[in-house]
């Protein structure tokens, strides 16, 4: 479903993605972890071309994302992206935030889009907040609205860039719960996160990155209990000690 073939990316002299080869199958839940600067956020940002790549190919649903002739709009319709800082539009209500893309990109009628939007809000447990502005919502609530916004386009793939890192500890749980329930629905998910509890619960595979390279991959049990590389073992011990 998603394939990286020999992908390389530089920020100036910094080699942020180093010869990445990766295959993600349909319905798979992939967790990507690693120290800061390892390139994990950059990796998923390249999937929907928020970042360009200098060499190699990324194929999503048989379409080559970074090909200049690619229909980026069509590709992005099938991918939902959740940001660390949520990035809800502050001048629109939760409902309007969710309806914006379905109405203007998929050209769905306003009435139908509203139905879908309310459905998704219910899905994330926030149906009573439909008319609230982002400024009136807590961080956890905003992130859940952001997830509803992503789901409203009925994407086959959902990408999460450290979705809980900007949240106060007591709100992390409500967002992770939503993500866990999504995982059981068969959506392909790529999640960059430090939340290892989440990984152990629902991930099909864990990817460990450092300095732009994929160092190790494996099932959660294999990865956490028997890491094959020293660097991975070192990383795991550091995050598990708090």
């Amino acid at each position: 479903m998603i394939e990286f073939k020999g992908v390389n990316k530089w920020f100036g002299k910094l080699h942020v993605l180093n010869q990445i080869d990766l295959k993600i199958s349909k319905g798979e839940v992939l967790v990507i972890c690693g120290p800061s600067g390892s390139g994990k956020s950059t990796l998923i940002r390249c999937i929907n071309k928020l970042e360009p790549i200098q060499s190699g190919e990324i194929i999503v649903n048989e379409k080559s994302v970074h090909d200049p002739s690619a229909n980026l709009t069509k590709i992005r319709e099938e991918i939902g992206f959740i940001f660390q800082q949520f990035h809800l539009y502050p001048h629109m209500t939760a409902l309007q935030n969710i309806m914006l893309a379905p109405v203007n990109v998929k050209k769905i009628s306003k009435a139908k889009a509203e139905k879908i939007a309310r459905q998704k809000l219910e899905r994330v447990g926030l149906d009573e907040k439909a008319d609230a502005y982002p400024g009136q919502l807590s961080g956890g609530q905003q992130q859940r609205v952001a997830i509803a916004r992503g789901l409203a386009m009925s994407p086959e793939i959902m990408l999460f860039d450290e979705p809980t890192s900007a949240l106060d500890p007591e709100m992390i749980g409500e967002v992770l719960d939503v993500m866990v329930s999504l995982a059981s629905e068969g959506i392909t998910m790529c999640v960059v996160t430090h939340e290892m509890g989440f990984a152990k619960k629902v991930a099909d595979r864990v990817l460990f990155m450092d300095e732009g390279k994929i160092i190790e991959t494996g099932t959660p049990t294999d990865f956490f209990d028997n890491p094959k590389t020293d660097r991975a073992a070192d990383f795991i011990s550091k995050i598990l000690t708090h």
Partner: peptide, 15 residues
Amino acid sequence: GQIEAGQSSGLNYFQ
């Protein structure tokens, strides 16, 4: 970030 959120949902420049 707002702009990226818009891009990610498939909105074009004018939208």
